[in-house]
Design a binder for these strands. Structure first.
Lengths: 124, 124
DNA sequence: TTGATCGTCAACCGTTTGGTTGAATATCCA
DNA sequence: TGGATATTCAACCAAACGGTTGACGATCAA
């Protein structure tokens, strides 16, 4: 892992971690709340968050008992810039954008948050 | 590896593979020529090329004894667009984003990249 | 202080990854 | 035909990955 881009792409390669980033896009979240929609242990989510943090994609800040996770888009932008180097494609392409949405919804049953209803959830 | 973006980011996570993509950005290359600058076996490079091909990032075409590797930027674009979603922080409204998602899903999109314009070869 | 909650750590486990080597296949050339 | 070149295949290996469980340190609330 010599190149600084390695841990970023490596972190993005996991659908759980991408789902977490998507959730954090909406708002900062506590670790427990991040873990809630997933069918895996809190420890597993904690590891995923560690990987995301090591890649610089998120930061974590303790406030009392709770650790808040915050998206850090700068690392993402660095990777994005690398890919733009290959781009004969423009940054904001609506067609590609809808393809993105389409693929996001085709998430497998237990690999991502079920965004249809998230009751019993109160943050902040 | 259920999500179509998984193999793409996974392929990009390796510096050798990113280097190969960069080389192919310049021109199509034979497998042996791809392998030449690396300090690993030809078989290892062949595996890397297989991974890149499975991710849709390159295609390979046999011409005589030689297999030519060609960059396919469309898969890269899909990943790039996913990341662009995070770059758009300010103007992006998550609710509108999800509404957009719903409407786009009810409208079957024409199924993605199919650019098979193979010009006749020249180099031998 | 006691007890519940939040999150990580440590050890473990099966699978995947990234490399090796040697044999196999396919094609060109003489 | 036979030999050289181009590439993959198969078996193997150590290391990393993604998950589990149980114990642990912190913090809040009573």
């Amino acid at each position: 892992m010599t190149h600084p881009l390695d841990p970023v792409f490596s972190a993005l390669a996991d659908p759980t971690r991408r789902a977490i980033l998507t959730m954090l896009l909406e708002d900062d979240m506590a670790v427990t709340d991040v873990a809630e929609p997933f069918q895996m242990s809190l420890a597993a989510i904690s590891k995923h968050l560690g990987i995301l943090a090591d890649a610089g994609l998120i930061t974590r800040e303790r406030r009392g008992r709770v650790i808040w996770c915050k998206l850090e888009p700068d690392a993402l932008r660095a990777a994005s810039v690398w890919m733009q180097g290959f781009g004969q494609f423009e940054p904001v392409d609506l067609d590609a954008f809808e393809r993105f949405l389409e693929t996001e919804l085709s998430d497998p049953p237990d690999a991502g948050p079920d965004r249809s209803d998230q009751s019993s959830d109160d943050r902040a």
